[in-house]
Write a protein that binds this DNA or RNA. Structure first.
Lengths: 193, 193, 193, 193
DNA sequence: TATGAATGAGGGTTCATTCAT
DNA sequence: CATGAATGAACCCTCATTCAT
């Protein structure tokens, strides 16, 4: 009814869809509900998005791109690898806390490979970012020798676990500071007196 | 009209359901499909399980109980905290790899709080197990001082992330050894030669 | 499990079924529920009754026969037609109040002609009983001239309406005395000074 | 994919539903059957009615409102209470004969209180209409003294019984004239010559 | 562009009835 | 006689998607 620019409508739909998807999960979120909450007709949805999956994927992609962008941005002028780890972790954790919906990314509701390539690509790039940091740390003599690839994977996975715990048990949320500390120093006591 | 013992049928259903749920996710897994794959009629399913949710929850609970049992068992005669960490991690990671379906546990499908109490309870108990290990390590002077609770949370979350990566990007799987190493030693170089 | 005589079991089933049918209606009453409440296996039900319909019909018939018997009994030595009307009405109304389940008789849940012949037969016989009373009253000069058949029908229908109101709106229940009075005297004022 | 106006479709569904419900009863009437007979898809039914119950209730309400309206209309300019009784009875009986489906109103299907409030309200209002008539008759000295409320109840119940007999045994139908006569004059002979 | 009525496959679930034990 | 696991058709309802307007 309201005359809106196409772009505006599309953005509006995406915003609403994020909310609806994160509230009900992919399967239970209905196009009808998204349409209604967007103030757009059902048919209207299909003007902007090929189908439900397309809408969902577009959504996820935009969020993932956003986080990737943010990460790169923040890391840009961090020289110290230890601090970079710190920054990386807190950026991710805070982003996750702010956009709980991201959990959806991981949701395993639909059969395999549902926008999975996109997600893989995202995680891969984040992993390689982390690898760079670690490698640099080792090169600079700040970090001990270790399997760079494996370590990067592990750290990325901590973040992934964090996202999950937002949903499953909020009391499991941990602080970015403690996380950095553990990742950097480990549990074992440093016997340097 | 095959006559099978009730127990046999129930077990058969649970096995098949695990497969179907993990293949399609909760929402997309249909009772029809489970029935067919079980070689049991649709109505037959409802003899053993009140409804779909009941079937799902029973499933998850058995797996969770199993892992909890296994963990406790393995940890029983481990004296060294560092080794305990090691054992804990490899037990979980290997279990997850063997029972990829466990991912379901984490799925954020259907509205909130869907068997979530059960899951919370499980994670809480695992967390407290981990806390005990860390506390013991500190008391013995093997681990450095740290926020026990936070550290436990983080370690548990690494495991959680691992489970997820099984689905999302198998190349992100990491080795239990490297994981223990990172958790124990941290990234920073030990400056005691 | 318990060894019971067949007759005893059959009676037990009928009693329970009456309760269950009247609580849930024919369609919603399940054989399973009747079996459970009877303490008899599902299969057991089918030993005594061909099927659900058979069970229902047997039930209704027994109640109807019971009421018919009771009516005849009570009327046997009533000489005065006016008193007979009185007796007839209060017998029916009280029976209905005591056995609310009778409503089922009228329940129109299933397609036409579901034990309808039996019901017709019952009402026909009650009607002819009433006709006899009225005819006798006219013959004796106590009742005024009227269409006997029509009047009988109407009176029977008052009873039928009463049964219904038990379910639909209990506040519509009326007293047998007032009913007899209306039927006998009518609304118009008697201008015999 | 026939495009019909919403109102047209809704009306069409209601008409068909009335037929189907009255033919099979609420429980046995299936949405599929109603859809098919309406020339509308199953899903289409749910555009206009929230669910089966809603469809049923809407149906009943419209009929009840219709009859209530008709009654009031007809009674409006009837001055003589005796004639009013006459009118009231024949209006109801004729309406019932024309719309046999009204029986549904009374059906005791599904658990208690299923649109029962609506029905109660209807009957209550009809009852109070009848009470007014009777009271007026007494005041005018045309009717004898009697318990107004009870009498009204009884008369309403005659009508109710009539509706039922349409289904159970059509030969029990009686004429409005005879009914009015009985209600007005009673069975007893008037002893004023 | 935009609408929303219409579709229809498919979902979870129930239940009368059968039959091997 | 008695049991109750098993069957499968049928029920109500949802929802992504289409298309005449």
């Amino acid at each position: 009814m309201n005359k809106r620019s196409g772009i505006e409508s599309k953005k509006r739909i995406l915003d609403v869809a994020m909310r609806v998807f994160s509230e009900h999960g992919y399967e239970k979120a209905s196009m009808r509900a998204i349409a209604k909450a967007s103030g757009i007709s059902i048919g209207g949805l299909y003007i902007y998005f090929k189908n439900k999956e397309d809408l969902y994927l577009t959504l996820i992609k935009s969020r993932l791109d956003d986080l990737a962008e943010k990460t790169k941005e923040t890391l840009k002028d961090t020289k110290d690898p230890a601090e970079a780890i710190n920054t990386f972790i807190s950026t991710h954790l805070n982003y996750a806390k702010r956009h709980k919906e991201l959990i959806l990314i991981q949701g395993r509701e639909h059969g395999f490979a549902f926008g999975i390539d996109m997600k893989k690509k995202f995680f891969k790039s984040q992993r390689s970012l982390m690898e760079d940091i670690i490698r640099k740390g080792i090169r600079m003599g700040i970090f001990g020798k270790c399997n760079v690839k494996e370590s990067a994977k592990i750290i990325i996975n901590v973040m992934r676990g964090f996202v999950l715990s937002i949903v499953v048990e909020s009391e499991a949320l941990f602080s970015p500071e403690e996380c950095s500390k553990l990742i950097l120093h480990g549990l074992l006591r440093r016997n340097n007196r």
